[in-house]
C-alpha cells in the first residue's frame, strides 16, 4: 500500500509519478469540488463575494456552482437554517450524489448563532445532516471561507477508501440519506436526528453541585 518515497523521488525526474489509486482519486475529488448554488441568508452574500474577482474561489477549483443538487458534491450551508427550511435542506442533501460534503458556514448554520433564542431557528444543521467543516463568523470573511475550503480539501485528500476505517461514501453499509424531519404542531418532528447528533452533556459536574 505505502509508496516508497525514495523510489517515487527517483522516478519523478523521469516523468513517472508513482502513487496509489486512493491518493489519485482523493486528489481528483479534492481539486474540483462543485458547490451547490444555495444561499440561505447573510453568509450567502459573502459566499458570492468569495467567488468574485477579488477573492476568486476558482483558484481552488470550486467555482462551478450548480443550481441542482444532483450535480453538486459540496453543500455550503450559508446562513440561518430556520425550522421551516430545515426539512428542505435535508431533502437537498439527500438528493446529492455521493461523495458529498457539507460546510456549515457561519454561526447560524453551526449553532443558531445570534438567532439562537428564536423560536423558528434550528440550533445547528448538524442536528440533521453530518457536517464536515465548520467556519465560524457572522458572517465569515471570504478569506475564512477559502480557508474552510482548503481544510476540506485536506480532509478529502486524507480519506481512506478501503479497509476498516473507510469513509462513509466508500462503505457499502454507509448511509447516504438521512430522515427528513416533519412539521409538527409546535416544533419539528423529531427535533434532532439522534443517530448522528448526540452532544456530550457538558453540564453534569456543575449541575450536580
Amino acid at each position: 500500500m505505502a509508496i516508497d518515497p525514495k523510489l517515487a523521488g527517483e522516478l519523478k525526474p523521469a516523468g513517472i509519478h508513482v502513487t496509489s489509486f486512493e491518493s489519485l482519486i482523493n486528489w481528483g475529488r479534492s481539486s474540483s469540488l462543485w458547490p451547490m448554488q444555495f444561499g440561505l441568508a447573510c453568509c450567502a452574500i459573502e459566499m458570492i463575494a468569495a467567488t468574485m474577482a477579488k477573492y476568486d474561489m476558482a483558484r481552488f477549483g470550486a467555482e462551478v456552482f450548480r443550481p441542482s443538487p444532483r450535480q453538486a458534491d459540496l453543500m455550503l450551508v450559508a446562513g440561518t437554517v430556520t425550522k421551516k427550511m430545515a426539512p428542505l435542506v435535508v431533502r437537498l442533501y439527500n438528493q446529492m450524489a455521493e461523495p458529498k460534503y457539507v460546510i456549515a458556514m457561519g454561526a447560524c448554520a453551526i449553532s443558531g448563532g445570534p438567532f439562537k433564542q428564536g423560536y423558528n431557528v434550528l440550533k445547528g444543521i448538524d442536528r440533521y445532516i453530518p457536517v464536515d467543516i465548520v467556519i465560524p463568523g457572522c458572517p465569515p470573511r471570504p478569506e475564512a471561507l477559502l480557508d474552510g475550503l482548503l481544510a476540506l480539501r485536506k480532509k478529502i485528500a486524507g480519506e481512506k477508501l478501503i479497509g476498516d476505517h473507510r469513509v462513509r461514501h466508500a462503505d457499502p453499509k454507509g448511509t447516504a440519506e438521512f430522515p427528513v424531519p416533519e412539521y409538527g404542531a409546535h416544533d419539528l418532528q423529531p427535533a434532532a436526528n439522534r443517530e448522528i447528533w448526540n452532544p456530550d452533556p457538558v453540564v453534569h459536574e456543575e449541575a450536580a453541585d
Binding site: Y119, N120, Y183, A185, A191, V203
Partner: peptide, 23 residues
Amino acid sequence: WDEFVDHPMRKDYVAPDDFEYEP
C-alpha cells in the same frame, strides 16, 4: 408552517426548549 398551532409573538408563548447548554 401550516401545521403550526401557536401564536409565537404573544407574550405568553413558550418556545420549544431545544437548546444545548454550556457550563
